[in-house]
Amino acid sequence: MNNRFSWFNVTAIVLGFAFLYIPILILVIYSFNDSKLVTVWGGFSTKWYAGLIENEQLMDAAWTTLRVAFISATMATVLGTMAALVLVRMGRFPGRTLFSGMIFAPLVMPEVITGLSLLLLFVAINFDRGFWTIVLAHATFTMCFAAVVVQARLSDFDHRVEEAAMDLGASPVATFFQVTLPIIAPSVISAWLLAFTLSLDDLVIASFTTGPSATTLPMKIYSQVRLGVTPEINAISTIMIAFVTVGVLIASYMTKMQTARVERDRRAADAAAN
């Protein structure tokens, strides 16, 4: 194979990753800065983290965000999995083109349009705006991402496994819960995590669809960021980054172990057979 680390490859990768990670690293470092100024290093301190816990508004917003993300991600995963099943398994039916268009369009739709259109819907049907309107809006736009993730897995797994289940007497519903769902489970979990993260992250759609009663963390951060860089925002950002990084690292480590184990077992089985 000609796959190796040449000087060109190493330079390209190092520079690319430097660009991706240096801004984040700086943000993390300055969250421990004792000084309030961004350019001056005033010594190590964790006082900004301690300050966060006392900031009740921020804690409230964080709690709201987590609840919105949890509920909307769960709804999005159920709906997205159904949508993926419709796209991959249901064959042709009237209106299929419209359906796949509606699933894929939100992926690239500017958030300002999605946000505005959902808000106008809630106004038109006189739905009280607040926590639940954000949940509905987030479930709608994240379900499309969930559908794409599950669809990718569904379309590359062997359809015959489902046929085998039905041949052995399992009804379509039993087949889905006993065979299909366990097999696509990793992608369903990824879909949930993606929907959860997208919801945690969203500023624009939440700003449009919320009412006076609910403020999410990104909205809170946004209103403070507009006033300038503060170490407090650095601190909360660092916590969010750490949260996600640990999650992604664990997930990818588990996938890696899993793949390695499957590979090892398969080799052992082949070796034993020969």
Binding site: D158, R160, V161, E163, A164, A165, M166, D167, L168, G169, A170, S171, P172, V179, P182, I183
Partner: peptide
Amino acid sequence: LAPYERSNINMMFQSYALFPH
């Protein structure tokens, strides 16, 4: 009849279609 209603007919599939889980 649907496949799961044909209880006296069973199939061995090409490339086996074993349940991986």
